[in-house]
């Protein structure tokens, strides 16, 4: 029973973290066709925005979240105007944007090291403590993270399904030409999605750094890499599938950590990803239609 709870709680904690990292990633892929290798630093930017607002500006701690949202907004804006805007019409966008975002990740990471040093800091926006059930602690922050991941997924789902903007986003993702012919300003849609992804990543970053990881320029790297596997398995572009896969994989990882060794969490995920992709090259629920040549 204790073992079960242990696995359950660590699975929930990890799963919430992965889900937070995967949502923004899969949104960008689904709409813009962009695998964002800067997702990790975008998470860290959110963490630092919150940290700076509370520590340097002396704002009360709940204002860390709006500060992160502003940081994410700016990041999305900059990404669009510096990179995406010039690239999305050109051939081989899918590969070019991966290279460009690897470059951006390194630039931003170096800048963060310059400003904040590489030493881990404490995220002041956090809720310490937790419930004790059967002698095992379930941290409050895990519950917050799960709720935030859930709210973001539902909110995003509602936006995409039921609003005029959301329909335009889906239309652009599915048939860019046809959407344009109906008067959809594709450039603006891409900008809006880029900003949404920036904000989602920033919020996720605050939650992540408040929970398991400390705040450092590399804080987002591991969650991003795990999110890669999750998205590969779930299929890029499908948000609910990404969240579901996050939880399932986190439980698998949790069980392996408990029964074998923490070392083999990553390799197990890779193995699963390879098996799934050999079986289904676009993931379990991937959208093949997004692929552009």
């Amino acid at each position: 029973m204790e073992a079960f709870l242990q696995i359950l709680f660590s699975g929930l904690t990890l799963g919430a973290m992965y889900a937070l990292s995967a949502v923004g990633l899969t949104l960008l892929w689904g709409v813009v066709g962009m695998l964002n290798m800067s997702q990790g630093v975008m998470l860290a930017i959110g963490g630092y925005a919150s940290y700076s607002a509370i520590t340097y500006l002396g704002l009360p701690w709940p204002l860390g979240l709006p500060a992160a949202i502003i940081g994410g907004f700016i990041t999305g804006l900059v990404f669009y105007h510096v990179m995406v805007r010039w690239m999305y019409r050109a051939p081989a966008f899918e590969v070019n944007i991966i290279i460009a975002t690897v470059g951006a990740a390194i630039v931003l990471e170096s800048l963060m090291i310059r400003v904040f040093t590489g030493y881990p800091l404490d995220q002041p926006f956090s809720l310490p403590g937790g419930f004790r059930i059967g002698g095992i602690q379930l941290p409050f922050q895990t519950l917050i993270n799960l709720s935030v991941a859930g709210i973001m997924t539902l909110g995003l789902g509602w936006l995409l399904r039921s609003t005029r903007l959301g329909r335009a986003i889906r239309a652009t993702a599915q048939r860019r030409d046809a959407a344009q012919l109906l008067g959809v300003p594709v450039a603006r849609v891409y900008l809006q999605v880029m900003i949404m992804a920036g904000i989602i990543a920033a919020i996720s970053g605050v939650m992540l750094t408040a929970s398991v990881a400390n705040l450092s320029p590399y804080a987002g790297t591991n969650p991003m890499l795990k999110a890669f596997f999750i998205c590969a398995i779930a299929g890029l572009g499908n948000i609910p599938a990404a969240v579901g896969a996050s939880l399932i994989l986190a439980f698998i990882e949790g069980s392996i950590q408990y029964s074998v060794s923490a070392r083999f969490g990553f390799p197990t995920m890779l193995g699963l990803a390879i098996v799934v992709l050999i079986w289904r090259p676009y993931g379990l629920f991937g959208q093949r239609t997004v692929e552009r040549s």
């Binding site: 005029r164 329909r167 335009a168 889906r170 239309a171 599915q174 048939r175 030409d177 046809a178 959407a179 344009q180 012919l181 109906l182 008067g183 959809v184 959208q287 239609t289």
Partner: peptide, 30 residues
């Protein structure tokens, strides 16, 4: 398109993963 020139392209450039209703609503995007 906003000026009122509506191009209905060759083939079926409908939005494949959207419902019929959402496809039509997209027509009234402007």
């Amino acid at each position: 398109a906003e000026l009122g020139v509506i191009h209905i392209p060759q083939g079926d450039l409908i939005f494949p993963d959207m419902s019929v209703r959402d496809n039509l609503l997209m027509g009234a995007y402007m």
